[in-house]
Write a protein that binds this DNA or RNA. Structure first.
Length: 956
RNA sequence: UGGAACAUAGCUUAGUUGGUAAAGCCUCCGACCGAUAAUCGGAAGACCCUUGGUUCGAGUCCAAGUGUUCCAACCA
């Protein structure tokens, strides 16, 4: 055996084939942190045009789930790609730290505020708990390779943020958007306080279900129905006309202010020829047509008939007598009214029901609130003063009977909200609340204008938030909670009016909060700030809705942090945030500044399992980021995130991650092969000028340049799956299946320092440089690993990190129609595909094994033959055969019958075993092997490459 | 129940103004043994969710339906 292998330029690299990223990433992160990578990026981009992605704060509770991971990875990809586009894109991560879920967790540990611990201590515990949660989540985010100012995040519980939240409230009040009102909330009469939905549990309860009739003030209401007409005139029937309602909460009747009907439902005027339970007498009742039969059954009225019909809308504003009070209430229209149960007419007490409240607002109904905090009717409540509402139920029923208004009464067992602590039934009770008005100062219309100016991606986001803003009620920002930013206002104890100096006072309070946190407000003695006014003015005890906290971060964070010099360019969150953060941010920003807080809003979908179902513990289909990073590494998780169209639901599953790992290996191996062929290549001394390169090498560099443009565009449009697909396809199709396969001959067998070899090394080097930047925003760990393995560039130094630089600018392009340019090689690629197909047939027949054992004859028409011959003798290198012969086909000189027709117009192929002997060095089969005395096992080409000046290559 | 979105090979995605459904991965078969737990070649693989409609012609336009997700909270 000869030793010619030693004369080859075989690939060599220390870059491992297996990434083993799960194990290696943590140490890379450690190193990056030690070297202050984030700080280095900031320094490198200082003074550059800024791009501000403002982080929506996750709630500081619990481990991060895969949705958090997707969100942060997408943000990170954007920040990194913008950085490579030479923007200064600082990334300040945030956390939402106040609010009920944390209170509930802390309650479990230390009990409710005001019981075992003071409110002050309780807040301290909440603060500690939130801080701990933030630390945990922060480490998990870091593990994903997210680059951020982790040492200086923003927390909504930072003292200066808390102070700014209060200032934001002041600004909104100053601009006239703040007003007081009432709103019904879940109320526990034992606690004497409101409850959050999370504190409500549903249990079965027995309630008195009653049907009550409200007599019409004006009996001519009958005219509204389509009454039958006879010779005696209209048949109107006889008996008092009433609308009948059904309710399970008789105690709410004192607060009744209307009866709701559905505009589109048909109602019947029913002539009853007996009273309920068969007693003698006549009545006319108004009921939903669909429910007449069931109602009559229930009432025990068997002699009745329909007099006429009308739509609910016909009854609007008809006046009815309250069943036991001396005032009238209107019939109003509400969409919440259905005909599933009851009578189709709904008792409406705006003080005791959310739907009642909402519909009542449309009709300017009074929000009557006759029930005190202890569940007892207030002193000025006629008939029931001093009675507890649940005890009063029986008395209300009795009173109804006395007034002849009770149509039916029975007991009902149904699911009813209870206090989770006392297990007692809850009531809905209107309490004074603070609202940001949607319409008083045109907030709704102004917001809609700003929404239109904002770019929503995908574009349906705009319609979505618009419809929400159009339909939303005033924003109730007050909460009766402990762990929240206080509504730092003083109101008059009797009138509820804001203190005349409220705006100045807010700044004074904010200064104190800046020093000592929100506790400063709760510790504050009113007289300290307002002196003698403290006799008449009291501190508002409410806290702010946490949506207000996060919604105002455009002010408390973006405006406040010195690394930001403008409003945010981009907000990026899950699509649920149209209702949430996007909305609260828009509302507060317009209320404060009259403009949107962001220029673009990008949304992503939710992560679902492989069947498209949401992830939940009960289904057992939850995949955690930790599982992925521990098994496959963060780069796989990142690649997966980047490879999907995240605007829809994002599917996660075992097979999907396995496929991502496959894709990862392909990209990694292609990079490895490039690196291994750059062994010994010094760009400064070995680079070949573009115009001196072999044609095929120029083509691939041009291809890479075109691709880079497309990839940057895809990054700019936030379409990362396009990046991944293009990258993969380039590795597979252009590189693996074509270019790299072809140049192996040159790379391995040409003289080490020949133009033929240096040319393709130059191309591979340029591609490796560019490709590393392409993948850096996504496969950050791998890209940096490759970056460190790349040779020193011609400039003499390489930045320590791929992340501080810009897209590679060393690629060159050629016009499409350049001689031997893109068009030419595209066509040759097609020809090669056909050759491969035919080679495969020959392989099946055992004529050849590998392609180099074959010789191919291309029968081509004149046009094609001319093209093919442009690369001359080097055509065989393109086809990776030992010989390639072109035969011109004309009408008179057709291809032989055993040649195989191809998909390429005017091309027939035939394949045979190459004649000659296999060269021991380059493995081509040629007749001249054995004719050279010095090297009997080599072909002439190899001898030139070993002993001579080296072969010349121009094309491939 | 309302509002919004989505539905194309096993997987991830392309499918322009309607004109015979593409790519990569996976799978299978083969080659190679100088990218080797790699690489190369070839092949197979789709009732474009269903049903109607418009049209000479529909993955694409329209309608209805099915499935899934998000929204409709003093949850974030």
């Amino acid at each position: 055996m000869s030793d010619y292998k030693q004369t080859l330029n075989l690939p060599a690299t220390s870059f491992a084939m297996k990434g083993n990223m799960a194990n290696r990433e943590p140490s890379m992160l450690k190193e990056w942190a030690a070297k202050d990578l984030y700080g280095k990026i900031r320094a490198a981009k200082k003074g550059k045009k800024s791009f501000i992605l403002h982080d929506g704060p996750p709630y500081a509770n619990g481990n991060i789930h895969i949705g958090h991971a997707v969100n942060k990875i997408l943000k990170d990809i954007i920040v990194k790609s913008k950085t490579l586009s030479d923007f200064n894109a600082p990334y300040v991560p945030g956390w939402d730290c106040h609010g009920l879920p944390i209170e509930l967790m802390v309650e479990k540990k230390v009990g409710k505020p005001g019981h075992k611990v003071t409110a002050s201590v309780f807040r301290e515990k909440c603060r500690e708990y939130a801080a701990k949660q933030v630390n945990g989540q922060r480490e998990d985010f870091k593990r994903l390779g997210i680059f951020a100012d982790w040492e200086k995040p923003y927390l909504t519980m930072d003292f200066h943020t808390e102070a700014n939240i209060i200032r934001a409230l002041g600004k909104i009040a100053q601009n006239g958007h703040l007003h007081q009102g009432f709103k019904p909330v879940h109320w526990c009469t034992d606690c004497g306080s409101s409850l959050a939905e999370a504190e409500v549990e549903y249990q079965d309860k027995h309630s008195p279900a009653i049907d009550v009739r409200f007599t019409a003030v004006d009996q001519s209401i009958a005219d509204k129905f389509s009454l039958p007409v006879s010779s005696q005139g209209k048949h109107e029937g006889t008996g008092e006309i009433s609308v009948v309602i059904w309710t399970t909460t008789p105690w709410t009747l004192p607060a009744n202010r209307a009866v709701s009907v559905n505009a589109d439902v048909e109602y019947t005027l029913v002539q009853c020829d007996t009273l309920p339970n068969g007693e003698a007498g006549k009545l006319r009742l108004i009921l939903a047509s669909d429910l007449v039969t069931s109602c009559m059954d229930r009432y025990g009225i068997d002699k009745y008939h329909a007099l006429g019909f009308c739509k609910g809308s016909d009854l609007e504003l008809v006046q009815l007598n309250h069943p036991f009070y001396d005032f009238t209430v209107p019939v109003i229209l509400g969409e919440h009214v259905t005909t599933e149960a009851g009578t189709g007419c709904v008792h409406t007490a705006p003080g005791h029901g959310v739907e009642d409240f909402e519909v009542g607002k449309l009709y300017n109904l009074e929000v009557a609130n006759p029930v005190g905090a202890n569940g007892v009717y207030l002193e000025d409540t006629p008939l029931f003063a001093g009675q507890h509402v649940f005890k009063a139920n029986a008395n209300v029923v009795e009173t109804l009977k006395e007034h002849g208004a009770l149509v039916h009464h029975h007991a009902l067992e149904h699911s009813y909200p209870h206090c989770w602590r006392h297990k007692t039934p809850l009531i809905f009770r209107a309490t004074p609340q603070w609202f940001i008005s949607m319409d008083n100062k045109g907030l709704r219309t102004d917001s809609l204008k700003e929404i239109e100016k904002t770019q929503w991606i995908p574009d349906w986001g705009q319609r979505r938030i618009e419809s929400m803003v159009e339909g939303r009620p005033d924003w109730c920002i007050s909460r009766q909670r402990t762990w929240g930013v206080p509504m730092a206002l003083f109101i008059h104890q009797d009138t509820g009016a804001l203190h005349p100096k409220s705006i100045e006072l807010i700044e004074v309070v904010a200064k104190r909060v800046e020093e000592k946190g929100i506790q400063a407000w709760f510790d504050l003695d009113a007289s300290e700030l307002i002196g003698d006014d403290a006799q008449e003015y009291i501190k508002v005890p409410d806290t702010l809705d946490v949506w207000f906290d996060s919604g105002t971060t455009h002010y408390s964070v973006v405006d406040a942090r010195e690394e930001f010099d403008d409003i945010a360019d981009l907000y990026l969150e899950g699509s649920d945030q149209h209702r949430g953060w996007f909305m609260s941010s828009m509302m507060s920003s317009v209320a404060m500044n009259g403009k949107a807080p962001y220029k673009q809003v990008l949304t992503h979908g939710f992560v679902v399992d492989s069947k498209g179902h949401k992830m939940s513990k009960s289904l057992g289909n939850v995949i955690t980021p930790k599982e992925i990073t521990n098994n496959l590494g963060a780069d796989i998780l990142r690649l997966w995130t980047a490879s999907v169209n995240y605007t829809q639901e994002i599917t996660a599953g075992d097979e999907i991650f396995k496929r991502q790992a496959d894709a990862y290996r392909r990209i990694r191996n292609t990079s490895r092969f490039l690196l291994s062929n750059l062994n010994g290549f010094e760009p400064a001394q070995h680079s070949v000028a573009f115009e001196d390169m072999v044609a095929l090498d120029r083509w691939v560099v041009d291809k890479a340049a075109r691709l880079q443009t497309e990839i940057i565009t895809a990054y700019n449009e936030y379409e990362f799956h396009v990046v991944v697909h293009k990258l993969m396809n380039f590795c597979t199709t252009e590189l693996g299946g074509f270019y790299l396969d072809i140049i192996k001959d040159r790379q391995y067998t040409a003289k080490a320092d020949s133009n033929a070899r240096r040319s393709c090394q130059t191309a591979m080097y340029l591609i490796a440089e560019a490709m590393t930047t392409w993948m850096a925003p996504i496969l950050s760990f791998t890209a940096q690993e490759i970056w460190q393995a790349l040779p020193t560039p011609a400039s003499g130094t390489r930045d320590e990190f791929v992340f501080t630089g810009v897209w590679f600018d060393g690629l060159a392009t050629m016009p499409d129609d350049t001689v031997l340019g893109n068009e030419y090689w595209s066509e040759l690629l097609l020809v090669r595909g056909e050759v491969n197909r035919v080679l495969e047939l020959a392989r099946k027949e055992k004529i050849v094994g590998k392609a180099l054992e074959a010789q191919v004859t291309l029968y081509a028409n004149a046009d094609l033959a001319d093209k093919l011959s442009q690369v001359g003798e080097e055509l065989r290198f393109v086809l990776i055969t030992s010989k390639a012969t072109i035969e011109v086909v004309t009408d008179s000189n057709k291809a032989p019958s055993d040649a195989i027709a191809t998909e390429v117009d005017g091309l027939w192929l035939s394949v045979a075993a190459a004649t000659g002997t296999k060269c021991d060095r380059c493995w081509h089969v040629t007749p001249d092997v054995g004719t050279h005395d010095a090297h009997p096992d080599l072909c002439g080409r190899c001898i030139i490459n070993i002993d001579g000046a080296g072969e010349q290559r121009s094309y491939a």
